[in-house]
Design a protein around this nucleic acid. Structure first.
Length: 193
DNA sequence: CAGCAGATTGACT
DNA sequence: GTCAATCTGCTGC
């Protein structure tokens, strides 16, 4: 029941963390409002050799700078000019591996999440919608995952191997052969309820 | 500098 | 199924 430590993120690869984060609790405390959910879908972006990654070929821009930070840092960026996508940076400084969180199962703070989404039914099954529900925005780019605002906690819900479905990542058709790699991980829908 | 595509979503035909 | 919303970064004039 403790937040995952900084060394946890630094000692593992993106593939390993993407798989192990399934079932863990992603929690935010923003402006005194606490919200959380269990991670049900992730994708691994494995570094400078990964054609689907913003850091492919060692590319370094103002947007993706945080991918080069130490493991345990948040990488939040704006996609299509509208949606905030939340990533967990993994490994050490200058090894830009990251895990995109694509879906959560909401647990705490449902009213606050509904208000942020401006909705009456709660949707958190997409990288843009879950970030909005949890209140994660560009200002959280670079936030520590062992800091006060965003953290990931093991609440004993680690997904068993046989309930994990793997497949190609979503929306990365431009990545050639790398688009086919099985770097998307999700908990089988039949095990969510 | 213009044009275009992108780790998406939701409204509409 | 189609398409607009709208910021970032890359390509080419």
């Amino acid at each position: 029941m403790k937040p995952l430590s900084e060394s946890y993120y630094q000692e593992r690869s993106a593939v390993q963390v993407a798989r192990e984060l399934l079932g863990k609790s992603l929690e935010t405390s923003i402006n005194g409002i606490r919200t959380s959910g269990l991670i049900t879908e992730t994708e691994a972006y494995t570094g400078i050799g990964d054609r689907a990654s913003h850091a492919y070929g060692g590319r370094r821009t103002a947007r993706n700078e945080m991918m080069y930070a130490k493991g345990g840092t948040s990488y939040v960026y704006l996609c299509y000019g509208i949606h905030h996508l939340f990533n967990v940076v993994v490994s050490r400084i200058n090894d830009p591996q990251a895990v995109l969180i694509r879906s959560i199962h909401p647990k705490e703070g449902l009213p606050a999440m509904l208000a942020r989404r401006n909705a009456t039914t709660l949707t958190t099954n997409g990288p843009g919608t879950l970030s909005q529900a949890l209140g994660i925005r560009i200002i959280h780019n670079g936030s520590s995952l062992v800091g006060p605002n965003i953290c990931i906690i093991d609440r004993g819900m680690t997904a068993p191997e046989q309930h994990i479905i793997t497949g190609p990542r979503i929306g990365v058709g431009y990545a050639g052969a790398d688009a086919l790699l099985p770097y998307r991980y999700r908990i089988a829908p039949s095990h969510l309820r």
